[in-house]
């Protein structure tokens, strides 16, 4: 197995494109290094992207935030402007693993690992985040929700690397929140995850919203019916009931070692209600 640490994205993409056996991007390695312990893991090439210039930076512009693919999740919470604009995204990223894991793991890695239970992905989808992708044929952009295509599978083509995650500019009176259910307090994997992102008008009425669910289907899902249930309301009980019902209805979980269908379906609604209330308060709603 070969380990490469290229200095430019072009070199990294070229290395991956030229590989004729399984090859992997290495960001924080908190998924990849664990997988490498498996008896059936096979790879000929590991391309470490942490030495590529700019990959470790968070940049704020008129268009929003650009988070380099090698930025460890712990760094997100140290960026005051990012925390103020996207508290839900930051709290999701800071639920991953533990303090030690957060010192290494990245949001892009969380997305590319394509676990249906990935914590930061519902928050990114609710935030309408996009990714910039570098590949052998140049650079393209895609919506975060279009990256995972199933458990462990992504839409990235051979040689493609996520260069950065792009968060849009924040409107005034907007807020987001992410909640997950785990049986323990940390070091666990989401049994249900819910993110709510919303914008209010001056009167406290929800003018736009996005609601995303994790761990209750093969990929993270955006639930339009849940957003519609709260748009135009000031998050009264009826709206919250409708939101919870829409999230439970959209859930298509399985019974497995992590939870039952009945449990996940119900808790999706409970967490949606709680996340919406937090997002509403963060947006300045009363």
């Amino acid at each position: 197995m070969r380990y490469e640490r290229p200095q430019t994205l072009e070199d990294a993409a070229a290395l991956l494109a030229a590989a004729d056996a399984p090859a992997f991007v290495l960001a924080g390695g908190t998924d990849l290094l664990v997988r490498m312990q498996n008896d059936n893991f096979e790879a000929d090439l590991i391309v470490d992207i942490k030495s590529i210039a700019g990959m470790g930076d968070i940049v704020q512009s008129d268009a929003g935030f650009v988070i380099g693919a090698a930025v460890p999740c712990a760094a997100l919470s140290e960026d005051a402007a990012l925390v103020a604009a996207w508290p839900g995204v930051v709290e999701a990223a800071n639920l991953i693993g533990s303090t030690q894991i957060q010192g290494r793991c990245t949001v892009a890695g969380n997305l590319c690992n394509a676990s249906p239970a990935a914590d930061s992905v519902p928050a990114l989808v609710a935030a309408d985040a996009r990714v910039r992708i570098a590949g052998p044929n140049g650079t393209r952009e895609a919506a975060v929700i279009d990256i995972p295509t199933g458990p462990g599978k992504t839409s990235l083509a051979k040689g493609e690397i996520i260069e950065a995650v792009l968060l849009p500019k924040r409107a005034a009176q907007a807020g987001d929140a992410y909640l997950r259910f785990i049986p323990r307090t940390e070091m666990d994997i989401a049994v249900v995850g819910v993110s709510v992102n919303l914008t209010l008008d001056a009167g406290g009425t929800v003018t736009s919203a996005r609601v995303a669910l994790g761990a209750v289907g093969p990929t993270v899902m955006l639930v339009d019916a849940a957003a519609e249930a709260i748009i135009g309301t000031s998050l009264d009980d009826a709206a919250l009931d409708a939101l919870a019902a829409a999230c439970s209805a959209a859930s298509t979980p399985i019974d497995d070692k992590r939870g039952t269908v009945a449990f996940r379906t119900k808790v999706a609604g409970v967490l949606a209600r709680r996340a919406a209330q937090t997002a509403y308060t963060r947006a300045g709603g009363k």
């Binding site: 666990d188 994997i189 992590r258």
Partner: peptide
């Protein structure tokens, strides 16, 4: 056995 590992065989962590 579906959970032969500490991710899904959940012993308490310190903060629990």
């Amino acid at each position: 056995l579906q959970n032969p590992g500490f991710l899904d065989y959940r012993i308490p962590v310190c903060s629990d």
